[in-house]
Nucleic acid binder design. Structure first.
Length: 153
DNA sequence: GCCAACGTTGGC
DNA sequence: GCCAACGTTGGC
């Protein structure tokens, strides 16, 4: 079963345009157990991802991506030169996981304000109070509504 | 820059 | 196991 997700990235760090330029990327640096568990257990090949730009004005969904490799150890966690280094994670006993994603389609910016203003999207985790998870589940209906708002068939 | 929300850490 | 302190996220 294909599922739908929303993943946050700060455009200063890694914008959707960079994903298009790269062709695919590994989603490293997630250091939250809930998000890790979803990447380890729930994100499956072919699942769709709303690529969300956080910490920018305005925050918005920028495009669609797709999972192209399921959960595997995040090697930046045992790289002492990485800013994501975690001394408790080793190749033998990895603590953190990541997935690979590839771009599917750019969309017209769908801002957080637009999402909040749409009653059909009021149950999205993104608009819930204090929601900070960098990987979030999205229902098929919510996914399709955002695609529609972004001008994607 | 502010600050609310939330996760993690560590003393007890 | 509790909880205060602290750090981070991220919208505003």
């Amino acid at each position: 079963m294909v599922r739908y997700w929303l993943m946050k990235s700060e455009p200063d760090v890694y914008p959707f345009s960079q994903l298009i330029a790269d062709g695919k990327t590994h989603w490293d640096g997630v250091r939250n157990y809930q998000a890790r568990n979803m990447m380890r257990d729930d994100l499956k090949l072919g699942d769709f991802v709303l690529f969300y730009h956080s910490n920018t004005k305005p925050p918005h969904v920028a495009g669609i991506a797709k999972v192209c490799r399921e959960g595997y150890p995040d090697h930046t966690s045992w790289d002492p030169n990485s800013k994501y280094f975690d001394e408790k994670s080793t190749p033998e006993n990895p603590r953190w996981m990541m997935v690979d994603i590839k771009p599917v389609k750019e969309m017209n910016m769908v801002s957080l304000a637009d999402i909040k203003a749409n009653p059909a999207l009021e149950d999205m985790p993104l608009v819930q109070r204090g929601q900070r998870l960098s990987v979030q589940p999205v229902s098929q209906d919510q996914y399709e509504e955002i695609c529609r708002m972004g001008g994607v068939q």
